[in-house]
Amino acid sequence: MINNLHDFLHDFFELHDCEVHKTDEGLLHVKLTRELDEALMNRPFYWHYMDKLNQVGEPTTLQLDINKKQSESNGEWIHFGSPRLQQIFNFIEKKAKYTVLYEKRESTVQEPLYPWLICNLRVNYCGLQKKEVIYSIGLHLIHGAILLDMMNRLESLSFDRMMSDYTYTISPIIRPVSGLKRVYDFIESNIEQEDLTWAEQAMQTLNEEVELLQHFYYEENEEELFQQEKEDLTKRLYPTISIEIINAGIFYISNDSTSKLMMDK
């Protein structure tokens, strides 16, 4: 959960090498980088011309106002519903789909790191309404142990994209792609245990509506419209579950930390 949007955005811009100034009143002063300017400011022609003219170009400076009411904001208003934030969210979601990370160690002797598949997923339940459940799953790629709530368990560890000195990796026995399939199987067997009343209700409503439809078009003799209405109904009411991967990656973790992860409840 994002508990403090101000901090969240500050970190985001800093991670992307922007100059950021944060004030206590909830303002954020950001000088964008070219990468972020292109992603957020929607002015492809500007950058196109700058490149043509061999010039560097000037990325935009944003003044973001967080937490206040829209009408009182002093700068660009940012809230969980604002389009700018949505844009930033989309940018992050797209960019942070895959990773390979190594636990940071300060070893003085050779130390092996064991492969884990960390996978965050969203299960979408669509019936009469929609609901989402998020899973964070860790799969040990050597012996196949599965842990839930993985992102929270990993919170106390640090990771880097480069291996620390004196560490080396153990190759997975379970291939990452088969790992993903195991994760799916695990979640699906979980879902099968769940209460399916919502889906039964949706199915029942769908059947009732289709019956009404048949009755309505019985005399009208308009097959095409009937089929279309039926299709619309099915789209709207047929219960479905889809599992979406938010992001996933291979994490190499030391034996010490692995034991701790497995111990935590």
Binding site: M1, I2, F8, D11, F12, L15, F80, F89, I92, E93, K95, A96, K97, Y98, T99, V100, L101, N120, R122, Y125, G127, L128, Q129, K130, K131, E132, V133, I134, S136, M151, S158, F159, D160, R161, P176, W198, I246, N247, G249, I250
Partner: peptide, 29 residues
């Protein structure tokens, strides 16, 4: 993707993406 370094992300951004998902999640029907 995991064999291509350019498509890989950092730990911080990986975490942020998960936080977003948790935040915008639709809890109930």
């Amino acid at each position: 993707k995991i064999e291509d370094p350019t498509s890989l992300t950092s730990w911080d951004l990986f975490k942020q993406s998960y936080q977003i998902a948790e935040t915008v999640k639709i809890d109930s029907f």
